[in-house]
Nucleic acid binder design. Sequence first.
DNA 1: TTTCAGCCTTGCCATGGTGTCAAGGTCAAG
DNA 2: CTTGACCTTGACACCATGGCAAGGCTGAAA
Lengths: 130, 130
Amino acid sequence: MKIGEVSARVGVSARMIRHYEEIGLVPKPLRRESGYRDYGQADVQRLIFIANARDLGFSIDEIAALLDLWSNEHRSSADVKAMALARADELGRKAESLQQMRRELLTLADCCHGDDRPECPIMDRIAGRG
Amino acid sequence: MKIGEVSARVGVSARMIRHYEEIGLVPKPLRRESGYRDYGQADVQRLIFIANARDLGFSIDEIAALLDLWSNEHRSSADVKAMALARADELGRKAESLQQMRRELLTLADCCHGDDRPECPIMDRIAGRG
DNA sequence: TTTCAGCCTTGCCATGGTGTCAAGGTCAAG
DNA sequence: CTTGACCTTGACACCATGGCAAGGCTGAAA
């Protein structure tokens, strides 16, 4: 299977597939005589795993760790669960931080008449201390 | 004022101050004979503005636009308000996306016994389609 | 068989926000 | 004058992704 077909199947760009290869997240595939990468079913599965983990918000390092667990017959589900909960926690923190900014912006916008005049509490807030 | 003092005053690293200069967000300061950057009060104000806008989640491009509005006597507060609301909207979308991931992780973790056995619905979800 | 579109290759640049490191010059206090 | 803290430029790194360019390969149609 050439890289284009793999890309279409797993929904990861050819660009990113090569990138994952470069950073060692996926093994270097066989090459045809032409130099084209030649993938098998196992590569597709691995890339699907990576794409799913990425869509759940895991970082590259975490995905590498998850891949190790995946191929480890003696893994503990507790380890996987711990990673999932840690990631959930981190995502919650980031989301809350964004919501915090959003709330402040909405509060400021509420105080701004929003007409043709230049006076603006939003501007004042950004220009001032705090 | 040397860059270190400015950095301490506005809470932006010297590294980032130089970066903002490089991308044209702050004007090139005067130089002493030694080559050291020499800042004035106006530079400090501008950097405070940038830091505040950054803390509210605005992108570099948006901050540049806000700075233009800031120095524009004839600005409409409506323009500022529109930017704030657009940013709030975007922040809300990002936060929701993170929360979505978080919810799915928590749901999966809830289904995982989390003991020494390898069976794990979290793993199954990441390895499978969808 | 030739041709041609479309795929593949490598390699580089860019984004954004920040850290770090190196090698060298400068400043201020003792 | 010494010394340590600060400044300078430049470069490399992260992470995920896009794009571009120049050139090679494939497969199907003419």
